[in-house]
Design a protein around this nucleic acid. Structure first.
Lengths: 329, 329
DNA sequence: TTGTATGCGTTATCAG
DNA sequence: CTGATAACGCATACAA
């Protein structure tokens, strides 16, 4: 392995000078900088991030913490989008990122979790889908041991940022669009989790619309579960004009149920996942760009790790309709 | 940060002794071992993997190299299964793993790729879906710079292992089962890639069955693309009894096409993905346990990194049928 | 069985 | 602007 010391020898300068070039210090003459760089080139030198991390006490490593299989979802499309978006951006800005699942830490207490991340030299966390009931994670965030970016949870502080679409507005807009086009009045709204962060916001948007437009709104909690949405639909859909769901997955469950019941009701979803193309009928929904959200989260966490202050970031959403042929081509 | 030195002081022993306890050296007396362990407990000591790696020159880090979005697949279920399986097992056996996508390295030449992994201190690679045309990756594997485990590519050597189901046998079995039940004779077989590793094996299994059972076999290449399978189906299905596909995704494309054409032909897939439940009709398929395959790959790579020799590992498969209600519950 | 001393490849401090 | 040198936390050869 060729080290910084070899480069120094080759370039005829001191080790510390090479280090300065490597880290783009300003006070290096153009001349020596060139000498060093050509030595690096010639020797094919690769800086050892391990040694660098040990010496500087900064690893720049982050963890992407994901909730897989808790949404009763066999086709984990959204987590995959998060992973792709985060990993690609992490590579672009040259930070390390590892993926961690909730299931891997769910049996641990806070201290164990802290140790786990510390042993991995993790300095920052991106948490996707934090629930209000995750008291341990909330404590972990408050502990200040790590910089944190939360996707879809409105917690902010000095070292915690929050990223999300405007759930209330998005739900309001898509539903308004939907009921206008379908001329629906009696709505079955299948909400997400009881007391969930995003669930509550979406429900609020829905309530606002109901009031404004004089809708009759009948709400049931579907826990973001396709199966539960299916059951709710089978039980209540007949007496309603239309079904609006707080997630696409539930919308798919509802639509499949309607098809099996052999009745038609328009269905509206939320998220914009590709699986919507397989539901059998085209549906209205809100598209969130999960890859971009994750990429933004990586950037934001990097910002926090550079000592900047936490903040709230709202990502754009888009009203769309999804159908099979668009998804596969 | 509490270090090994603090532990040593607390336990009243030397640093090296603590290190020996940490690394389960045999020649430490039970007495001192206990002293050290209780000191560790008391101080909440977390070994610093960075320092350990620097000193031992062994990081134990591996990379999971995935091909996402090349299969013309919007719902990336299989890569997600690989990720979950690999990450969970990596945590269990206490090795670091990072996820890397083909797209991230596709513009690099071999040297750049090597440097990239070296700069991340990666010692081993798990490569999923290596194609015969990936000459750079083949050279990388041959270079011997990294230990490699290949999923679904039959390359083996001193430091390269291969993991896969018995594709030929599996294709043979599922197709045999399928044609027997459906009493089909004239088969449209939609193959994977031309000259692909697994594609060729599956095609072989299919040909063997055709010969044995006197089938008329008409083969077209679908490139594992749902859309291409759809087109092929629309063009040729009418004159055939049944359609057998080299992947579930193509089977879904075929089934959806049949539904749109309003004709019925039984369809057989390969993989056992959950998305099959959304195709509209139940289908025969082969189930591969992708999570288990990835978990096994992690173990195998760990074995290679411990200096053991490369080998071929065949994973079990299972003949199943997938339908919607099973998938969502 | 235990302790001492050296080095791993960097970064950072400080003197020149 | 450049160079010597002391950390960083741990592993390991070797001495005791």
């Amino acid at each position: 392995m060729v080290s910084i010391r070899d480069v120094a020898k080759e370039a005829g300068v001191a080790i510390s000078t090479v280090s300065k070039v490597l880290n783009h210090y300003p006070n290096v003459s153009e001349n020596t900088r060139q000498k060093v760089n050509s030595a690096i080139e010639k020797l094919g030198f690769v800086p050892n991030s391990i040694a660098s991390a040990l010496s500087s006490k900064k690893t720049g490593r982050m963890a992407l913490l994901l909730d897989v299989n808790r949404h009763v979802q066999k086709v984990d499309e959204i987590p995959m989008q998060y992973i792709v978006g985060a990993i690609n951006r992490a590579k672009e800005i040259n930070v390390d990122i590892i993926t961690v699942f909730f299931t891997m830490i769910q049996e641990m207490n806070m201290e164990e979790i802290i140790r786990y991340f510390q042993s991995q030299s993790i300095e920052g966390l991106i948490i996707c889908g934090l629930s209000k009931q995750d008291t341990i994670l909330h404590k972990l965030i408050k502990s200040g041991k790590f910089k944190v970016v939360l996707i879809d949870a409105p917690v902010m502080s000095e070292n915690t940022s929050s990223i999300h679409v405007d759930n209330m507005l998005a739900q309001y807009e898509v539903a308004k669009n939907f009921i206008t086009e379908t001329k629906s009045k009696k709505i079955l709204y299948i909400s997400g989790k009881k007391n969930g962060y995003v669930s509550d916001q979406r429900l609020q948007g829905m309530k606002k619309l109901a009031q404004e437009s004089g809708l009759s709104l009948f709400t049931r909690v579907g826990n973001f579960s396709e199966l539960e949405a299916r059951k709710i639909t089978m039980q209540y859909a007949k007496k309603k004009d239309a079904i609006i769901c707080a997630s696409d997955l539930m919308a798919i469950g509802a639509m499949k149920a309607l098809i099996d019941m052999d009745i038609f009701r328009p269905v509206c979803g939320f998220d914009g996942i590709g699986l919507m193309g397989y539901a059998g009928k085209q549906m209205h929904t809100v598209r969130q760009d999960f890859q971009k959200i994750a990429a933004t989260a990586v950037e934001e966490l990097s910002r926090l790790m550079d000592g900047e202050c936490g903040r709230d970031i709202i990502m754009p959403h888009e009203l769309i309709r999804i159908q099979y042929l668009d998804v596969i081509s």
